[in-house]
């Protein structure tokens, strides 16, 4: 992946998109905004419409009902933008990964959007945890902004 150094490094406006998660992730995000963690330090600001957003915080496994709305939201964000997939749900569906009512996480959605809407997925940081701690969310956000580097190496497991 190319080095992320987006124009919004110093002023990332975030939009919070719950796609059917259980809320725990969402309140941890809110927690990151409040005095103890205070992400406004980094210039982050919660905005109310995807049009103003630079970073989309996506939580939840993307349920069937919310799928189309999530797609529309992602299409309504002006580029360049980044996505943080927060929580095990968003990363790979979590415990609902194979349930009939979800599509099982963000990668599946990207796959579908690439085919149907010719949508090039934006830089995406995956933050596992159920829910991830606010510190983890901030760490992930810092990576997306290019402030911090990843501490783990990417390795893909292949069956021999």
């Amino acid at each position: 992946m190319a080095r992320i150094n987006p124009p919004f490094k110093k002023s990332p406006w975030i939009f919070h998109l719950n796609t059917g998660g259980c809320n725990a992730c969402d309140i941890e995000i809110l927690d990151a905004l409040t005095p103890y963690h205070d992400v406004e330090r980094f210039g982050m600001k919660l905005v109310g419409t995807p049009r103003h957003a630079d970073v989309i915080l996506l939580t939840g496994p993307i349920t069937r009902e919310s799928k189309i709305k999530v797609i529309r939201t992602l299409l309504a964000v002006p580029r360049p933008f980044a996505v943080l997939a927060i929580g095990s749900c968003a990363v790979g569906g979590g415990i609902w990964f194979d349930s009939y009512a979800t599509i099982g996480g963000l990668p599946n959605l990207y796959e579908e959007m690439r085919h149907k809407y010719n949508f090039e997925p934006p830089p995406t940081i995956y933050i596992p945890g159920c829910p991830p701690r606010p510190e983890a969310i901030i760490f992930g956000a810092a990576q997306a902004l290019g402030i911090l580097k990843k501490k783990v190496k990417r390795e893909v497991y292949k069956e021999d």
Binding site: G20, T63, E65, S99, A101
Partner: peptide
């Protein structure tokens, strides 16, 4: 929107 099929 968050029907995730928990009961099932």
């Amino acid at each position: 929107h968050v029907h995730r099929g928990i009961e099932k």
